[in-house]
């Protein structure tokens, strides 16, 4: 879905008189809520290769009070500042276990130390174990197991120890 389509969609919803529209396509979920004069779009990036930056840019009308009503994914915005993201150093496929019959490398709530392996990324048949560079606790896993990831895409949220 491109910028133009999203803009058209916002116009369509604004004119239609409905209060809320949810649309999921190509791994991008868009929620458009209309208030008295406010239109809001929330882009939740599902594990898909589509970059969800465009919908955000298409929504300059987002107002602070409206944001509080956003989906849970966007809710802890104020808190996340203390968290550190572990990002993907490459394009590839994200795996949470060394092989299908093995345990997860890490789970939410796990304490991790610098040097612990947190995931594996397969890039064109090269298998890369990714070590944590910090000590801390896994707060959130941002990507589903066995799905594609882009360079620099956040994989985990970690609360530094």
């Amino acid at each position: 879905m491109d910028l133009k389509e999203i803009q058209d969609l916002i116009k369509f919803v604004a004119k239609s008189g409905v209060n809320e529209v949810e649309l999921e396509t190509d791994g991008v979920k868009i929620v458009i809520k209309t208030g008295a004069t406010k239109i809001e779009t929330i882009a939740v990036q599902a594990p898909a290769p589509v970059i969800a930056a465009a919908p955000v840019a298409a929504a300059p009308a987002v107002a602070a009070p409206a944001q509080a009503a956003a989906t849970p994914a966007a809710a802890p915005a104020a808190d996340t500042s203390k968290y550190v993201e572990i990002k993907s150093p490459m394009v590839g496929t994200f795996y949470r276990r060394p092989s299908p019959d093995k345990d997860l490398f890490v789970n939410i709530g796990d304490d991790i130390k610098k040097g612990d392996v947190v995931c594996m990324i397969e890039a064109m048949k090269l298998f890369n174990e990714i070590e944590s560079e910090i000590n801390g606790r896994i707060v959130k896993v941002l990507v589903d197991d066995a799905t594609p990831v882009e360079y620099d895409q956040p994989l985990f949220l970690v609360e530094p120890a």
Partner: peptide, 14 residues
Amino acid sequence: GILIENTLSGSRVQ
């Protein structure tokens, strides 16, 4: 056949 397995810390191949 070739099977390469790397260990990375941050963006560096250790």
